[in-house]
Design a protein around this nucleic acid. Structure first.
Length: 192
DNA sequence: TAGGCCATCTGGTCCT
DNA sequence: AGGACCAGATGGCCTA
């Protein structure tokens, strides 16, 4: 049991996520408190390659875990290992191979797959920590870590807020550079 | 004790 | 074929 990631849980006062995501969605108005929206857009973007490289450097040694729980808790699947997937008629060649594998070989394969999945989830958690670091909320040892869902929601709203701010700045800059565009038009001599 | 959050396992599916 | 991704299930930990 290596619950390394969830050690940060000395939890006096955590920022209530619900308080952070007020459902306002005030548009354009000077309000720059990132407000929650109800947009249900989902952009299917894979993690950028530079991130994985960063993760790789950050992880360093996230390879195989010494103690896989298989020995302890064993397989949860109804029937142990081999006969579990008899129903699926679309037996690919890998499954045929699996049927030919011996029990220790199957266990070894399972351990390998589990380890990969564990590493994948660890990478995901590292990325989530990186996201938490740049989120505008109170960090610190005395503050409970944002949950994953709260982190994602906060990030989304933060991005929306920054986008609005940028638009506002562009607008103000345009006014500053090009003052009174309408007045110049209005001052044109009326021809008649 | 219930509920929330999380890690892990597992089988299926998609992609390279 | 092998790996990545995903979703469901399960159990543990923690807080109100």
């Amino acid at each position: 049991m290596d619950s390394d990631a969830s050690l940060v849980s000395s939890r006096p006062s955590s920022p209530e996520p619900d308080d952070l995501f007020l459902p306002a969605r005030s548009k354009g108005s000077s309000g720059s408190a990132f407000t929650g929206g109800t947009v249900s857009s989902s952009t299917p973007s894979d993690c950028p390659p530079e991130l994985s490289a960063e993760l790789r450097s950050a992880m360093g040694s996230a390879g195989a875990h010494p103690g896989d729980k298989l020995g302890g808790s064993g397989f949860k699947s109804s029937s142990s290992s081999t006969s579990s997937s008899t129903s699926s008629a679309a037996a690919s060649s890998t499954k045929k191979d699996k049927k030919q594998m011996t029990e220790p070989e199957l266990q070894q394969l399972r351990l390998k797959i589990n380890s990969r999945e564990r590493k994948r989830m660890h990478d995901l958690n590292i990325a989530m920590d990186g996201l938490r670091e740049v989120m505008p909320y109170a960090h610190g040892p005395s503050v409970r870590k944002l949950s994953k869902i709260a982190t994602l929601l906060l990030a989304r709203n933060y991005i929306l807020m920054l986008t609005n701010s940028l638009e506002e700045m562009k607008r103000l800059l345009h006014i500053w550079v090009n003052p009174h565009p309408l007045r110049t038009v209005a001052l044109l001599p009326v021809s008649h």
